[in-house]
Design a protein around this nucleic acid. Structure first.
Lengths: 114, 114
DNA sequence: TAGGGGTACTGTGTTGTACGATGTATGTGT
DNA sequence: ACACATACATCGTACAACACAGTACCCCTA
């Protein structure tokens, strides 16, 4: 039970949130998502985490996917797009996220306010 | 897989963070912690979640405990105090928490910056 | 005497996610 | 031949939150 363990606990939920935040902006393919998240160690995750997560989101119809050929002999890519249901879900998550930030900041200040 | 599920995922790690943030300020007893967290639905949790969590923190020596008599015939209370190790742990968590907030805010703005 | 609230704790089992390990395929570079 | 990057995938495990259900004790009130 050290900080590394805690970091992997924190990713629970945060990862899903980050991925939907990304895909909301434009279609991303799996490997690309992994690369983007790699820039932020706190939410970095490998294939064995991201692909199952994407499959879960697909299954829940929060995102949809479509294959697209790559130029220059690269393997084809599976692009993910957010659905309307996914957008609703993301909005609900954003609200709860704000609640969490509020809770933490009030808890931090508990001494001063009673 | 709805927002309720996501909320319980988000609690992983956040709960531990909140409890250490609380206890850092002054000693709290278990029932008191549960009551305080109840005010924030996003981090609210019942006995069967909080007590095992406190036991984990005790076992890892992030907190220590001591019994104290209550006035007016109330049952004695077990007060939890943060240890030095717990403080170090909490500081490390705070850093990672900031990293998470930064990551999310940058991911939200990915369209505008590249 | 029955019920409710404060206070601490235990046990069993389910669920869901991160993650370690591993596999499959293609193309490029050495 | 071998490593490395791109790209997607599966299997199994560990662990925290949590549902549900208890034990035990003391006080106060209806």
């Amino acid at each position: 039970m050290d900080v590394e363990d805690w970091k992997s606990q924190i990713k629970r939920g945060s990862l899903e949130f980050c991925i939907l935040l990304l895909i909301k902006q434009r279609p991303y393919y799996g490997y690309e998502i992994i690369s983007v998240l790699e820039e932020y160690p706190i939410v970095a995750a490998k294939e064995n985490t991201i692909y199952p997560l994407l499959r879960r989101l697909l299954k829940g119809e929060y995102i949809s996917s479509s294959w697209q050929e790559s130029t220059e002999g690269l393997p084809p890519r599976k692009y993910y797009t957010i659905t309307e249901k996914g957008n609703d879900y993301l909005n609900a998550m954003s609200l709860e996220w704000d609640n969490l930030l509020t809770a933490i900041s009030e808890i931090k200040g508990a001494l001063n306010h009673g």
